[in-house]
């Protein structure tokens, strides 16, 4: 099962490598990874998606929590949550692609005879579908933010 794990981590050199290294060390895979400083910039928020059973994820979150630089960890998939992914794509445009991306909050950034650059965002399943729609033959370049997640409602992950 897909899991979305949110991590608050000190913004210190090498901190990110400790998290990434841990997944490898413990035999788990990272599917997507997003990180950036938040609030005063002294710490970052990461969103990591991975696959595993309930007990796998319990182990992963416990092990991540043990990393000294990690301030807080939460498995968003345990409860209601928001999950979005952002993409930037360069492709040979067709009307069908345009329509699909427009439906995903698409924005055109560049357009010429050969190709078109658009951004879009949506749930990761919507994004997967959109990438399929663009198709291998039309797609020239693609960059994904990886999942971004937040708890729904009053539940928050902060210091």
């Amino acid at each position: 099962m897909k899991r979305i794990i949110s991590i608050l981590i000190e913004n210190k050199p090498g901190a990110l490598a400790r998290v990434v290294g841990l997944f490898h060390q413990r035999g788990y895979n990272i599917e997507t990874l997003n990180v950036g400083p938040v609030f005063d910039g002294s710490y970052s928020r990461m969103t990591v998606t991975t696959r595993g059973t309930e007990s796998d994820v319990e182990q992963i979150t416990k092990q991540i929590n043990k990393i000294i630089d990690v301030i807080k960890v939460s498995d968003l998939t345990e409860g209601e949550h928001h999950e979005y992914e952002f993409i930037l794509a360069k492709f040979k445009h067709t009307d069908k692609i345009l329509k699909t991306l427009k439906a995903l909050n698409g924005k055109i950034h560049e357009k010429n005879k050969e190709a078109m650059v658009m951004s879009a965002w949506g749930s990761s399943s919507e994004i997967e579908l959109a990438i399929k729609t663009i198709g291998k033959t039309n797609l020239i370049e693609l960059v994904r933010s990886g999942s971004l997640g937040l708890h729904e409602g009053i539940k928050v992950l902060k210091i």
Partner: peptide, 16 residues
């Protein structure tokens, strides 16, 4: 050293 010792330390520091 920080890199090669990472999987076998509780924590590590590099002095800046």
């Amino acid at each position: 050293m920080i890199g090669i010792s990472r999987p076998v330390v509780k924590h590590s520091f590099i002095v800046q």
